[in-house]
Design a protein around this nucleic acid. Structure first.
Lengths: 365, 365
DNA sequence: CCCGCGCTTGCACAGCCGTGCAAACTTTCA
DNA sequence: TGAAAGTTTGCACGGCTGTGCAAGCGCGGG
C-alpha cells in the first residue's frame, strides 16, 4: 500500500462515465476524492476550491473545476454539515398541507428559505401516529437548524429537547412561549372585534359565529374576541361549532344556523373555507342572497375568497411577512435563548359579502 | 466510575446540559460519544443499540437507552447516510405549490414517503433563477435518494448527472423518458376525447377549449386530443389560450370566448381552476346559467370543483395512486437502469355542469 | 479440569468534508 | 545572488456514524 500511483480510484472515470453512465447500478456518488484523483491534486485542494475565501491558485482551481464538471461533482452538504454547525435544513411541521392557507404559507416559506440558502424539509403530521413530538425528533435526527411549527403544539419537554440539541423553534400562531424559540402571532383578537363592529355598522342585528371543533389558538381567539365584544355591548350571539375547519363543515354550519327560527343576518366564520361553505348553504339551500339577506365575514383571504362567486369580505393573512420574519430569524441565528415574539397584523379586506351601511345608525356608531 | 447499576440521574444530566446550553449558543447536539460516556460503554455499543439486528446484551441496551433518553439523543441521519448508501431524503421539485392540485399531490407524497421511512425535501422552482437544473443539483448535494419532478422538465444532461450520482428520478406527467427514471402518466389524451363525446351526447354544438399558455405536456395532451377528435368527426372547435393556468386566466378566457358572435355552448377547460373562472365569467358577467346555457368540463377534480357553487363535471386525478406508485418505486430501489413507465387513469366525475342529454340524438351516437 | 463454542464488546477503519499547520514553492527586494 | 515574505499545497485531524474483526467472557460438555 505504498504511495505509488496504484491508488487510482477514479479509473478513467471521466471517459467511462462521460460516455455512458449506464455502467451498472452505480449508486455510489462521486466524492471530492474522485475529483482530486482526476485533477491530479490533493483532496484538500478540491475542498478549498469549493470553499469561498480559501487559498487556491487559479491553475489548481481550473483543473479542479474541470474535473468536477466532467464527473458531475456536487459538494456533499451532509458531510459538510458534520463539521460546520449548520446543515442548512429547516423542518416544516405541518398537517393538512393541501389547505389553501397552509399551502400558501409553505410555498412562501420554502421560497424564502431557499433564497436565504437554506432548504425546507416537510414533516407531515396528518397520520395519527405522527405526532408533533415524533416530527420534532425526526427533524432532530436530520440535524435541522430550525423547525417551523405550523400545526399542533409541542410538549414543553420536547421543546427543551430541541433547545438542548441546538434546534431552534419557530411557532406560528401557537400560544405557548418556549425557550430558544420565536413566536409569530397575528392579531386574531382585534380581527374578531373588527368583524363584530363591521356587522353592526352594516345594520345587522342577529349575529352568529360559525367555527370548527379544532382547538387551534387562532380560531379560538377569533371566536372569543367576537363573542366578548358582543357581550360587552350587550348583544346576543349564536355560536355554532362543527367538525374540522373545511368547506364541508361550513356547509353543515350554514344549514344548522340558517334553519333556526331566529335566522342570523350576519355570520362571522373563523375561516374562509367555512365562510365559503356557509355562503353556499345560504344561497343554494335557503335561496338567500348575499349580502342582502345575510352578511358574511371570513378569515385568511384564501384565493377563493376573491373569486367572483364569493367576493368574501375577510382578513388578509400576512403570509409573506410571516414567512419573512421566520426566515430572517432563522438566518440571523445565534440570538441567545430569550424567547422572541413578533406580532403581525391581518388587515381587513373589504369585498361584497357584507351589506352596505343601513340608513339607521348602528348603536356602536 | 464503576458500572455498578449506574442508575443514570436524568436530572443531573439535564441540568448540566441546560447550563452549558445556556452558556453560549449551545449549537452542539449530543452525539453517540456523549451517550457512550454517560452509559459507561463504548461508542460502538451505542451504535449497535440503535441498529436493528445488531448484537447487544439486554443490560447494555438498557444502560444505553437510559442514557440516550436522559440526554435526548437522536441518531444523526446525516452521518448515517455517509456510510450507508441511503440518506432517506427524497427531493420534491415543484413550482406553484399553493395550487390545489399541486398541494394535494405534495401532501400525498410527503405522507406516503414518511410512512415508508423516507423524508421529503421541498425544492421550490418559483423564482426564475431556480431552474430545474439548479434544483436537481441541490438535491444532489444533499444526496437525496431520489427526486420527484412535479414541474418543469430537466435537461437530458442533468438527468444523466443524477443517474451517474445514483439519484433516481420520478417524472410525473413529463413527456421525456430518461435512463434510471420512472415516468408516471395520466390518460390525458383519452380524457380529452371523453370530454368531447360527453359534450356531443349532451347535444352541445358550439364547442370550445379554454387553456393556458403553459406548455405543460398534460395540458397540451388534453387540448390536442379534444381538438383532434373533433376534427375526426368533422366538427369545428374554438380554441382560446391565455396566461397561466389559474382562476384569473379562466375569467379572462371566459370573457373572450363568450363575447364572440358564435357563443359556445360547451367549453372544455384543461384545468379546474380555469373552469371555475370560466363558469364565474359566464354567470356573473354574461348572466348565463350552467348547464342550461353553457356546459363546462374541467380537469383535476380539485376540492372547489365539488363546491355547491360549481358542481363541476371533471376528471379525477389519481393522486393517491400516483403518490403510491412513486413511493413504491423509490422504496423498492435498485431496479436497474431500464426506464420504467406507469400509466394511471383519471376517471370522469359527473356533476352538474354538463346539461342532460337532449331529446335529439347526438351524431356520435 | 480443560477445551471449544457462542455471545458481547471494543478497536479501528471507512465514508465525506473542512481546516490548522507546516512544508514547499514563488515572488520580491536588497 | 541570497534572503525574506507571501502564496499554495499536502498532511493529518476532527466531526459522527456503521461494521468487520478479533479478543474477552461465560458456559456447557467431555
Amino acid at each position: 500500500m505504498g504511495g505509488g500511483e496504484g491508488k487510482v480510484t477514479a479509473r478513467k472515470i471521466s471517459g467511462d462515465a462521460r460516455a455512458e453512465g449506464a455502467g451498472q447500478g452505480g449508486a455510489k456518488s462521486v466524492s471530492a476524492k474522485d475529483v482530486a484523483a482526476l485533477a491530479g491534486v490533493s483532496r484538500a485542494a478540491v475542498s478549498r476550491t469549493f470553499t469561498p475565501g480559501a487559498s487556491v491558485s487559479a491553475e489548481t482551481r481550473r483543473k479542479v473545476l474541470e474535473a468536477a464538471d466532467a464527473l458531475g461533482y456536487q459538494v456533499n452538504h451532509l458531510a459538510r454539515g458534520l463539521t460546520r454547525q449548520q446543515t442548512g435544513i429547516v423542518a416544516l411541521i405541518v398537517a393538512k398541507l393541501a389547505t389553501p392557507y397552509r399551502s400558501a404559507m409553505v410555498q412562501a416559506l420554502t421560497g424564502k428559505l431557499q433564497a436565504a440558502g437554506k432548504v425546507a424539509m416537510i414533516i407531515n403530521t396528518d397520520q395519527e401516529e405522527a405526532t408533533v413530538e415524533l416530527a420534532l425528533r425526526q427533524a432532530l435526527s436530520y440535524r435541522a437548524d430550525a423547525a417551523v411549527i405550523l400545526s399542533g403544539m409541542p410538549d414543553r419537554s420536547i421543546a427543551d429537547l430541541c433547545h438542548r440539541n441546538g434546534q431552534r423553534l419557530v411557532l406560528i400562531n401557537r400560544d405557548d412561549s418556549l425557550p430558544g424559540s420565536i413566536q409569530l402571532r397575528v392579531n386574531d383578537a382585534q380581527a374578531g372585534r373588527m368583524a363584530l363592529l363591521a356587522f353592526l355598522r352594516a345594520g345587522c342585528r342577529r349575529l352568529a359565529v360559525a367555527t370548527s371543533c379544532d382547538d387551534t389558538p387562532s380560531l379560538l381567539a377569533r371566536e372569543r374576541s367576537f363573542l366578548e365584544e358582543a357581550r360587552t355591548l350587550g348583544l346576543d350571539v349564536q355560536c355554532e361549532r362543527f367538525g374540522a375547519s373545511g368547506y364541508d363543515s361550513g356547509l353543515a354550519l350554514g344549514e344548522r344556523l340558517l334553519v333556526r327560527p331566529e335566522r342570523p343576518d350576519a355570520v362571522f366564520c373563523t375561516t374562509d373555507l367555512i365562510a365559503c361553505g356557509v355562503m353556499d348553504a345560504a344561497r343554494q339551500r335557503f335561496g338567500l342572497s348575499i349580502p342582502a339577506d345575510l352578511s358574511v365575514i371570513g378569515f385568511d383571504d384564501i384565493p377563493q375568497a376573491g373569486w367572483e362567486a364569493y367576493q368574501l369580505t375577510t382578513f388578509t393573512q400576512p403570509i409573506e411577512e410571516t414567512a419573512s420574519a421566520a426566515v430572517d430569524w432563522i438566518a440571523r441565528g445565534e440570538n441567545g435563548d430569550v424567547p422572541c415574539r413578533v406580532d403581525l397584523t391581518a388587515t381587513m379586506r373589504w369585498r361584497r359579502s357584507v351589506r352596505a351601511r343601513q340608513a339607521e345608525a348602528a348603536p356602536a356608531g
